[in-house]
């Protein structure tokens, strides 16, 4: 670990000022400290924001929810409002990490967590994300865990979060606070695909801070849920995952929100699947047909070829679990 300074911000203005001076925000520290130990992250100054008043979950007008950036994963998962309104969110959280990590890690930090790509996390390997221009060891290396969607010739690292997949599906927005006031960014625009700049992972600028994630009001009744497919039954990142929310009325699917995890360089919104579902009546055949579109555009690598098929089956399964099979 490289030496760094540490300060604890007592209010938002102080945190923003420290951020503008180049300070790196730390909340739960469950990803940043790990990476600092491996010298992957070498911040000169840490600004602890854990004392800021961003720890509330509030209902918005119309039935949405606003989850403060410093709400822990455990708190968000256990929150009765979250559980009642968006089971897909609480399920995604509960299937993440371990109980100890969920107690420490925050919602804002979860979105900002960095990839689990083994080459990114090993400073002796080339990695364009860690060291732009050094090359990508994963493209021709061991890439079982890597993305089949949204990759570039510079980077194929997956975004590791589960709850971000639920956020992507639900079309959440990210509330920021910074020099330009309090902008709100659509979740789909917040996390960036690698393209030619895999080191740029999000739209946050220095001195900007996530204050909350807002889940929009969606028509009710809304059934939702999260399925995570992985080698072992707990404490592992997803091989594939699917977040599904369906508004079914009069026997017809009126709204469909679907996204996939473990397969994309960012949480992967499955718009083609959604479009196929809307206006249709739930059936086994429909789930299968819709899921056939889940891997559209996939570019598998040597060790993750199975993921395209596994993704389709994951989505099909979760559509059935959420939508039923009448």
């Amino acid at each position: 670990m490289h030496p760094f300074s540490y300060t604890k911000a007592s209010d938002l203005e102080g945190a923003l000022a420290a951020g503008r001076r180049g300070g790196r925000y730390i909340a739960g520290g469950t990803t940043l400290v790990d990476l600092m130990r491996e010298s992957v992250e070498r911040p000169g100054a840490l600004v602890d924001i854990s004392a800021l008043p961003l720890g509330e979950i509030t209902a918005t007008a119309g039935g949405g929810l606003r989850i403060g950036a410093l709400v822990s994963m455990a708190e968000a998962a256990a929150d009765p409002k979250v559980r009642a309104t968006f089971p897909v969110v609480s399920q995604a959280l509960e299937l993440s990490a371990s109980a100890q990590l969920r107690n420490m890690a925050t919602i804002g930090g979860n979105i900002m967590q960095r990839t689990r790509c083994a080459y990114f996390r090993d400073v002796t390997a080339p990695c364009n994300k860690r060291e732009p221009g050094s090359g990508c060891a994963a493209l021709e290396g061991f890439n079982r865990a890597h993305a089949i969607l949204g990759g570039s010739d510079q980077c194929v690292a997956t975004h590791p979060s589960d709850v971000a997949v639920a956020f992507a599906a639900l079309e959440a927005s990210v509330h920021l606070r910074g020099p330009d006031g309090e902008p709100s960014v659509a979740f789909a625009d917040f996390l960036l695909r690698p393209g030619g700049t895999p080191d740029r992972e999000h739209g946050l600028r220095p001195g900007e801070l996530i204050t909350a994630v807002e889940l929009p009001a969606l028509p009710r009744p809304l059934r939702s849920g999260y399925l995570k497919v992985r080698d072992r039954q707990s404490y592992e990142f997803a091989l594939t995952s699917a977040a599904v929310a369906l508004h079914i009325k009069g026997g017809v699917i009126r709204e469909a929100k679907v996204a996939a995890g473990g397969v994309g360089t960012v949480p992967w919104k499955l718009s083609a699947v959604e479009r196929h579902l809307i206006g249709e009546r739930p059936s086994e055949a429909l789930w299968a047909e819709a899921a056939e579109r889940a891997a559209d555009g996939a570019r598998p690598l040597e060790h993750n070829r199975f993921k395209a098929e596994l993704l389709k089956r994951t989505v099909e399964r979760q559509l059935r679990i959420v939508g039923g099979s009448e």
Partner: peptide, 13 residues
């Protein structure tokens, strides 16, 4: 490549 306990999987409870 997987010289850590997140990537080298052992059974959990």
């Amino acid at each position: 490549v997987n010289a850590n306990l997140a990537d080298y999987l052992v059974p959990v409870n």
